[in-house]
Amino acid sequence: MQAVILQLAVSGIAMGFVYALVAIEYTLIWNACGLLNFSHEKIITMGGYVFVGTCLFQLGLPNIPAIVLAVILLAIFGIAIAALIFIPLRNSTRLIAVVATVMLGQVINEGVILIWGSVALMPKNFLSGVSQILGATVSKSYVYIIIVSIIIIAVLQFILKKTKIGKAMTCVSQNKTAASLMGINVKVSMAITVAISFGICCIIGVLTAPIFTVKQQMSTMIALKGFCAGVIGGFGNLPAAIAGGLILGVVENFAGLILPSVFKDVVAFALMVVFMLFFPDGLVGVKNRIQKHIAKSQMEKLS
């Protein structure tokens, strides 16, 4: 029993980090351009295909250079998409913006089918095998997901807080007019944000390749659950998105113990709908409300 629980916890946390990465990736674009990137699912798939199809199979690169090349290619692609679609669309109607990003996803999907075919690809000897942790057998890919995600989150935090580019990005996401007055090139900053976001998409595709195999539908579920994670944590807030993703991953995995496996995917969406209806600000809103309540009661005590 203990082994089972540990196993579920590890895979739950790993999937939670994947959802958190998805949430981070679209939150970056949401903050910078004010667009919800509905095409991120296809971009994750594209990342997987670029890594396995092009870098590993066609170019025959070793694993690490292949990942680096794939991430760089996707980042360049991101800059192009930002210049062509995201930046021009930032001032249009919200309805058009949503549909345009959705259609962008369809274009990418058809392009992927045309370039790599609609066959499932499986990287060989990549993050495969199992490892023993405290008597529980855990797939190695889950362990790698946890480690790599923590590294990415730390690096991203470093970039956003300590570097000039990151500070400019934060500034743009908070106030575009003020940013441009301070001499920040808003459009370049947006393009960099989109490039980083697409790079993270590619890493998600690479990390989940051994679990789902690289195919058209590999990222449908994680992309949608990434949205759930964002809603549960609090939309537009990076640390909250991470918390939301972790909670979602663990809850969903343990729900599989109690509920029939049929409902495993439904749990995440139901949780999201409940949060939308009753806690629309997510966990951040709940935390703020509790803090306010405490402050109020302290004030009452003092007076």
Binding site: L36, R94, C228, F235, D265, V266, F269, M272, M276
Partner: peptide, 28 residues
């Protein structure tokens, strides 16, 4: 839900609705 949630969030709720229905139809 359309009374309570704002624009993009509402799109998300409806996507979730679509996925819940599709999942249930596929698995029940």
């Amino acid at each position: 839900p359309s009374l309570r949630v704002q624009f993009v969030y509402f799109s998300l709720v409806t996507i979730a609705f679509n996925e819940i229905v599709r999942n249930l139809l596929t698995n029940l």
